[in-house]
Amino acid sequence: MTLVIENISKKIQQQDVLKNVSFELNTGEIVGLVGRNGSGKTTLFDTIAGELLPDFGRIGLDGLDYIKTIRLHEQLFYVDMPENWLRYYSPRKIKAILKLAYPNFDEQWYDAEIKRFGLNNSKRIRTYSKGMRALFMIIVSFASRAQYVFLDEPLDGLDVLIRDQVKQLIVNQVTSHQTTVLIASHNLVDLDTLVDRVLLLKNHTIDRTFAIEENKNIRKYQLAYSGEVLPTFLRDSGTIIAQTGHVVTIVFNDFTEALGIKLAGQDFKFIEELPIGSEDVFRASFAEEAHVWQQELEGTK
């Protein structure tokens, strides 16, 4: 079973937010959705879930139009974060409501997780701390036993220990129920340990889909240059992440053999390739913007 998003476009207040967005979500996958602030991640979630009506495009599930075939809606769970109606109800009342909305709602698992994380069953969700609310949203999402679960910044506000448990919970749920999870997050380090692949939203569309191990073209190096000034080709072909004196950490978006030969030359005293993560791919994807900012910052100094 595959959720197919085809050429979704959406304008809000006459501005393009999504433009021909297309991708697929397969059974049992955990997929990350990354993009800069305001890039349209939440709008994409809202549109797929049915809150927003797309201006153009189609969302298909089981060969049917997901938006128009309302009986399919029990197969997807998504709640807006942080403002949503759940805040005004207690876990007990929410359970009663969701049991009706989602026929496969796993009552036993829900109760067990509420108890395990020490959440108060009769208090309204809005009285919870930010972290507790985030935790509750994850529990309720998976308890729905919907085939597709969309999580918007799910790890936001969680402390490290709870975050680890939640990540484990997500992986366990996906493994045991073959749930498909789409996670939007700015925490790319956490995403790396969780997702099978990442969708990068840039210029209102899915600019690239990548799995870390597949990105042979993107390379990250730490190097020390020998001259007085940074060799200009570095700035032109990569994104400098950090610089301390003559030691530079740099990500190359499109690493070529020619670039490798230059790095092996006399200009450098030391060079080491580092493992890359989603954060590096993200930086590399927005290298031009980062470069412009860097120049602006240098200009203002």
């Binding site: 809150e51 309302i70 809606h73 029990e74 998504y78 807006d80 403002e83 949503n84 909305a101």
Partner: peptide, 10 residues
């Protein structure tokens, strides 16, 4: 925001 959530339901 109950309206909005109901749009995602059956």
């Amino acid at each position: 925001r109950l309206d909005i959530w109901l749009y995602t339901q059956k």
